[in-house]
Design a binder for these strands. Structure first.
Lengths: 218, 218
DNA sequence: TAAGGTACATATACACCGTAAGTTTGTCAA
DNA sequence: TTGACAAACTTACGGTGTATATGTACCTTA
């Protein structure tokens, strides 16, 4: 009688729906009840496929990390690092909620492991010693996540928006108390064509060039 | 009869207690009810001094930022940036919960404004153009927050702990699947004397040196 | 001294949250 | 047909932020 084909739930379907929910309404809109609803199921049914909500959070972070393009064997380390940085920023921009989750998530999933391993491989094959590879990994990764974190905490998305927001903020800011902040806002952030996102590649290249110099000098 | 002197609640007392609660039990232990309890008051009484919980979160982030040593007028930009980076890391290490809050907090408080302004002043007085100051600010800040974020997401605190954790992780890791991860763990992180925190100054100096070179070359 | 206003603490209530425990249902093998 | 098992559902508990309404203690002014 019931012609509807029962599509069974699965860990994968749960996680995919969770990513969709977080994308649509932010991480705070991801509750077990809403997630169940999204899947046409009661909240408690989800517990047949994941141990608890923490496991869901770990899982969706790993999904986002899995979207980052990883270096292939044989790639030159410098363009490879450049590319993976840009790809990481793109992934976290698509899923802004994932950035804040990084801090609280302890258990790396398989995609994260593969990601880290391929980055280290790229550096080691590029001639970095173990210690220098650790240095390079740390500084590049810190920069990537830090930049994304800062970018996401800005109260605007586009350059035009930035100018508007800056204008209203400056208007109600005690100018003589924060003169350099005002200067930066008025003479830089409020200028036409400004886009904070453009800063990303400046810092990235500064770091990559410095690492390259350090490597060739040694 | 009642000899107890009534100490009235205030926004400041609320925020201070909130910082204490978050320090003691993490940010998820900070609830309005527990906070009221801490202050000997019902949860709803807090709303006479703060608009809502978000305002508390904004407020305690600003308190943490206020603990960062800021450059004084006249300081050389490079040691000033170095010092404020180290001081920022120390502040966020004392209050780890604040790092994750940075992403979700939009409204900078007075301490944050003063902090940003003094950093910009240091760079501008150090000879950076507005554009270069923006570049430098972005790359240094991104690095600082990114590093802290990474450091906090490590599942260990000390070098010895790191070695232990690495050992158990590697033991259950498919070695041939993540060879470079294993190499890094065994030949670096598990070595005596290892401490991820030492990476901080390497990356910091790499960035500061690169900025200095860029400035003198120009 | 009395009256009125203001500031702030409280009490109650609502809609949500994660999840423990127990019960029912759907599906497939014997 | 029966039995077993997986997976869905139901109910319930103790927590969350906060809207609303209700005291209550103090200060100001007459």
């Amino acid at each position: 009688m019931a012609t509807s084909v029962r599509v069974p739930l699965s860990r994968e379907r749960v996680l995919t729906a969770a990513v969709g929910l977080a994308d649509a309404g932010g991480i705070e809109s991801l509750s077990m009840r809403r997630l169940g609803q999204e899947l046409g199921v009661e909240a408690m049914s989800l517990y047949n496929h994941v141990a608890n909500k923490d496991e869901i959070l770990d899982g969706i972070v790993d999904i986002v990390v899995g979207e980052i393009e990883i270096p292939s064997p044989g790639d030159d380390w410098k363009p490879a690092m450049r590319q993976r940085a840009i790809s990481a920023r793109a992934a976290f921009t698509r899923h802004p909620w994932a950035t804040g989750l990084m801090e609280s998530r302890i258990n790396p999933g398989p995609a994260s492991m593969r990601y880290y391993d391929s980055v280290l491989r790229s550096l080691r094959e590029g001639g970095f010693s173990i210690e220098m590879a650790a240095h390079a990994f740390s500084v590049i990764d810190s920069y990537i996540y830090g930049f994304i974190l800062q970018e996401l905490s800005l109260p605007f998305d586009t350059g035009e928006e930035a100018a508007e927001v800056a204008e209203t903020i400056v208007a109600q800011m005690p100018v003589d108390e924060y003169p350099y902040l005002v200067e930066m806002a008025v003479e830089h952030a409020m200028q036409p064509g400004y886009d904070y996102g453009n800063e990303f590649e400046f810092g990235l290249d500064l770091i990559l060039d410095a690492l390259e110099r350090m490597q060739t000098d040694a």
